[in-house]
């Protein structure tokens, strides 16, 4: 009797698993249908998923895109990049920051001249903004407001989240650009991170943490803030006067079996229609289209190149042992341990 209940239980669990697996397979095959057409594999980071779905739909209604189907994969930028480096098939890769492309350039999976074009390989822009509760009850406007007593700041951990590095560089850069020394910039990061009660592993989880009620300010990309507002979250956001220009790269891989079609799709990403779709999803277009004017231009907008580019910044700030951020986390950790 007992054995029989166990058996039926096992059967039930098995049935559920089977149903889930079939569901998953169905989802997988719907985006992977071929049938004599050219299939391009797009491997991208997770946030522009919605935008790419709309762009692909628009592309397939054009003469060039008529016979092109897509296999889409979305995930954390670093994970996606590592997956492609380890052999995941990709014709087009789109990541949240340049080092994820650089990894593939080193592995000879992306040509070294990927950023030779007019837009330097970047397909969308954004800026780091300060997301607040509806009505901004704490009156957050500038970077120095974040380190006032009683203000809780949410930002992902810059070691687990490649995207969180934009936040760190925005906070640091804002100090440097307002005339502070490098040491003062580092001091600011130390102050700032003592105000951070949660360091989620990804930017999306930070957004979730913030919308579930934790913290006063969320450091996020403008497109994420707009996304959250579009989803009906009760938040406001401030574009600070001093902030960093986020640039998201895209490239075609050297292993692409359909380089011509991949190139055509890449070109389409810069067409007014596609850039308009990106803009509607909260990204700043990289070309001069009408929608670009709806995004306010911060007074002092700086770029990662102002700090020597990602290669230098990664070593200087984000080396897990000797980087500035490792030092900041340690210093805070030690002071906490003493309490």
């Amino acid at each position: 009797m007992r054995w029989r209940t166990n058996k039926s239980k096992v059967a039930m669990v098995f049935g559920v698993v089977l149903a889930l697996a079939l569901g998953g397979a169905a989802c997988g095959s719907s985006s992977a249908s071929g049938g004599g057409k050219v299939q391009l594999s797009l491997v991208a980071y997770s946030t522009p998923q919605e935008a790419y779905a709309q762009i692909i739909k628009a592309y397939q209604s054009t003469p060039e895109g008529k016979n092109v189907t897509f296999r889409k994969s979305f995930g954390a930028s670093g994970d996606q990049s590592r997956a492609v480096a380890s052999g995941l098939t990709a014709d087009i890769v789109a990541f949240s920051l340049e080092p994820d492309i650089t990894r593939l350039v080193k592995a000879k999976l992306v040509p070294a001249d990927w950023n030779a074009g007019e837009q330097k390989g970047m397909v969308t822009d954004s800026v780091v903004v300060l997301v607040t509760r509806k009505g901004n009850p704490k009156g957050i406007k500038t970077w120095s407001d974040l380190t006032k007593p009683g203000v809780e700041v949410i930002t992902p951990n810059p070691f687990t989240s490649g995207g969180a590095r934009w936040n760190v560089m925005a906070a640091y850069g804002a100090q440097i650009k307002t005339g502070k020394s490098e040491a003062e910039g580092v001091k600011y990061l130390e102050d700032l991170f003592t105000h951070v009660p949660v360091q989620d592993d990804t930017a999306r989880k930070s957004l979730q943490t913030f919308t579930s009620g934790k913290g006063d300010v969320l450091l996020a990309y403008e497109n994420e803030a707009i996304f959250a507002q579009q989803k009906g979250q009760k938040i406001d956001y401030v574009v600070p006067d001093d902030t960093i220009l986020i640039e998201n790269p895209v490239a075609i891989t050297t292993r692409s079996k359909h380089p011509k079609e991949a190139k055509a799709f890449l070109d389409y990403l810069y067409a007014d229609k596609a850039q308009g779709i990106f803009a509607a999803n909260g990204y700043r277009p990289v070309t001069k289209i009408g929608a670009a004017s709806k995004f306010p231009t911060p007074k002092n907008l700086f770029t990662i190149a102002d700090f020597g580019g990602w290669a230098d910044v990664t070593t200087k700030f984000f080396d897990t042992d000797k980087g500035i951020m490792a030092g900041v986390e340690r210093k805070i950790g030690v002071s906490v341990a003493k309490k």
Partner: peptide, 25 residues
């Protein structure tokens, strides 16, 4: 990873630390 807050030295468990090391190459 969700409930701990992942603050290094306070609530970051080894698995998340390992994840951070991998993300940082």
């Amino acid at each position: 990873v969700l409930i701990s807050g992942n603050i290094p030295f306070q609530t970051q468990v080894s698995s998340v630390h390992i994840f951070g090391q991998i993300e940082s190459d």
